[in-house]
Each structure stands twice: as C-alpha cells, then as structure tokens.
Amino acid sequence: METVTTRTVEYPADGLTMIGHLALPAGVDRRPAVLLGPEGMGLSDVERRRADALAELGYTALAFDLHGGQYLDDPEEMLARCLPLLADPDRMRDIGHAALDVLRTEPRTDPDRIAAVGYGTGGAIGLELGRGGVSLRAIGTVNATTTGRPGESARIRCPVWAGVGSEDPIMPPAQRNAFTAEMQAAGVDWRLTVYGGASHAFHHPPVDHRVVPGVGFHPQHAQRAWRDIIDLLAECLPVSSGDARERGHRSAQTPR
C-alpha cells in the first residue's frame, strides 16, 4: 500500500464552515480522485478511514462535511437537518459543488478524473451532482436509492452503482423500484445490488449512541459493499500506476 498523507480542509457551504478530510497518496503526480460523502449523521472517523484507504489505493480522496464540523448523533437532530436537505436538490448540489471545488483545486487531483461515492445523505448528494450535469467518471451510493426531479437524470453521463439492504425500511422496495425506473428511463448505465438481510446503514460499524429503528451493521455485507465500490472505481477510474481492484482485494477488510 502507498504511504498516505492527510490534512483537514475548511471551506464554506450551506452557510457553514465545513471541515473535510483530504487524503493524498504517495508521490507528486496527479491522480484520479474520489469525493466521499458521509451518512446523514455527518463526517466521522469511519469516512476519514475510508478516504485514507482510497488514498492507499492511489486515489486523491476528500471525505466531505455535511454539518459544519458537527456529528449529529441524536436521531431527531439529524433528521431535522437532513430531511429538508434531502428535499432540496439545489441545496444538496451546492454542498456537493463546494466540496468538489476543494477536491478539483488540490494539485494532486486530475480534475478530469473524479468519481463520487457516498453513503446515505452523502450518496444522495453524489447523485444530485450527476443530475446537475457534473462530469464524473462514476457514481457509487450505499443506502441512497433517491430519486430526483423529472428528467434530470438524463444529465448523468457515467455509470451508477447503488447498494442497499433488502430489509432497509428507509429505502424500501418501492423506493428502489422508483430509482431504477428513473435510471432506466434516463438511459443511465446503472446497477443495483441488494444485500440480503441487511438493514439501513449496514456498512457502518456499531455506534455508541441511539439510532432509529431499521438501522444495523452487517459485517459480511459491509465488506462486500466495499469491494463492490473498489470494483466500480477499478472499472471506471483506474489508477494508472496499478490495478486498484487487485490492491483493494488484497486488503478486503472494510476500513473501520
């Protein structure tokens, strides 16, 4: 694995000062980059470690912030902020664009080779960037089979992969079907992986605070979803100095 350097980056978005986590691979050359979005609770060490793992694979990676440096571990507080956000595509795009600008202006980033990967609210933001016409190489989401405004998914110009738990009450079958129908009607190159028996946020290690019903960690599927993300990046955003898929499979454990 490559030696990784990290730093905190501050930038304005949504009327807040966001505090993101930038991870850089070894070397000085430009690399393909990944914009990494967190669950609705906000940026945590889980996403920071995943950004570091992507940098180990050779990517420049930015784990972006949702709440101005706050982690909303109270479910009511999180929903009070995220539900209006998820109902406002333009606001989601503004948050995504602000983070994308930070990633694009990083000297180690190849601005023409960027993918968006996200979980929950962070995944929904990645989809909205695509619907807004941002040129991305891939969009990968977990727990975010969210639909957009009519017709806008036709602007997505890259493959889309979505992963969801079969027992996720927040993204139930009707929501998944609406998402796939939207992608199909728009002519998007899409894939949906349903992880049997998994709940919402199945990828996220257990937390020490109260969560809403229907949320739970599934360690086997968490590792599978991570490998699926690495496969997506290896296909759509390969690292020129080596095969990201091969490296990712050598380190199959999900970053915790």
Rank of each mutant, 00 (worst) to 15 (best):
I125F: 02
V188D: 02
P75M: 01
A244M: 03
M171D: 11
E2N: 15
A61C: 14
A23W: 03
I230D: 00
A87T: 04
G37S: 04
A181H: 06
I125C: 02
R191V: 12
R131F: 00
A138Y: 04
D208A: 13
A61I: 08
A26I: 04
E2F: 11
W161V: 05
D52C: 03
C236A: 15
R157N: 13
A144I: 14
P219K: 00
E47Q: 15
R49P: 01
R210F: 13
Y59H: 04
H67W: 04
V160Q: 00
W190G: 08
V188L: 02
D110E: 10
A23L: 05
G140H: 10
R247E: 03
T60E: 03
M171Y: 05
I114L: 09
A174E: 14
T146E: 08
P75K: 00
G197S: 11
A116P: 08
D228Q: 03
R256F: 07
V211M: 12
E56L: 00
G140P: 04
E77G: 09
G214M: 04
R108C: 09
E235R: 10
G15H: 08
S44M: 03
G123T: 12
A61S: 15
A198Q: 06
P84E: 01
R247H: 05
P169K: 09
N177P: 07
R81E: 10
A201K: 00
T193F: 13
L232Q: 02
P89S: 05
R256H: 09
E152Q: 14
R250Q: 15
V164L: 13
P206S: 07
R50Q: 14
A53N: 04
G69L: 05
H97V: 09
F179Q: 01
D101N: 10
S44P: 05
L83R: 13
Q253F: 11
A234V: 07
A225W: 02
E56V: 03
T60Y: 06
L237C: 09
T145I: 09
L66M: 05
R157F: 14
G42T: 06
A13C: 07
Y71P: 01
L192I: 11
G40A: 14
P219G: 07
R227L: 12
I229R: 07
N177W: 15
T17E: 12
R245F: 07
